[in-house]
């Protein structure tokens, strides 16, 4: 460490104005294509795919108890169908309702969530937003610039039985 820094110092002192001499390997090269990496070191770079960020965001949103389900109506129905197929795994549906955009150092997350009836929706979305930001930033190192949440539907308990079978009057 000390030898390299002293070597760099002597190079800087000795050669004077030849800053554009040998190409440096450290740091992003100016002409190189933008790398989708949160971490670029002199020994290589780390790429984080969209699907990874989407899964982390989906799991982080589901950690909040106020989230009943995720995805738009059509996606939720397809997810129910898919879960009936033997051999399918829950992992496929983790990223349901999540769309992400991953840039070089930043990411933006859009979520479609369904909450329970009888809750403060603002409270739920605030909890989801802060947890998604914390998990994504903690696990990937990407900076989350925004988390947009669409509350698509609200789940009323007993809704699964379809139309109310009992008539309102006896």
């Amino acid at each position: 460490m000390s030898s390299s820094s002293s070597a760099a110092a002597t190079e800087r002192d000795g050669t004077g104005g030849t800053g554009s001499g040998a190409p440096r390997r450290t740091g992003p090269a100016p002409g190189a294509p933008p790398s989708h990496a949160a971490l670029t070191t002199e020994h290589g770079q780390t790429r984080i795919a969209d699907a990874v960020v989407a899964k982390i965001a989906g799991l982080a949103a589901r950690e909040i108890p106020g989230v009943y389900s995720m995805g738009t109506g059509f996606a939720r129905r397809m997810g129910q169908l898919r879960s009936l197929v033997p051999g399918s795994t829950d992992i496929d549906t983790v990223a349901q309702g999540v769309s992400v955009e991953v840039g070089e150092r930043e990411t933006a997350v859009d979520l479609d969530v369904v909450t329970w009836y009888g809750q403060n929706i603002v409270e739920v979305t605030e909890a989801v937003r802060s947890n998604v930001i914390e998990r994504v930033e903690g696990m990937t190192g990407l900076r989350v610039v925004e988390v947009n949440i669409n509350v698509d539907d609200i789940y009323v308990e007993g809704q699964d039985s379809g139309e109310p079978s009992q008539s309102r009057v006896q």
């Binding site: 982080a60 950690e63 909040i64 403060n120 409270e123």
Partner: peptide, 9 residues
């Protein structure tokens, strides 16, 4: 409407 703060888990 229950007065609760949602936290992970």
């Amino acid at each position: 409407i229950p007065a609760v703060t949602h936290v992970p888990g």
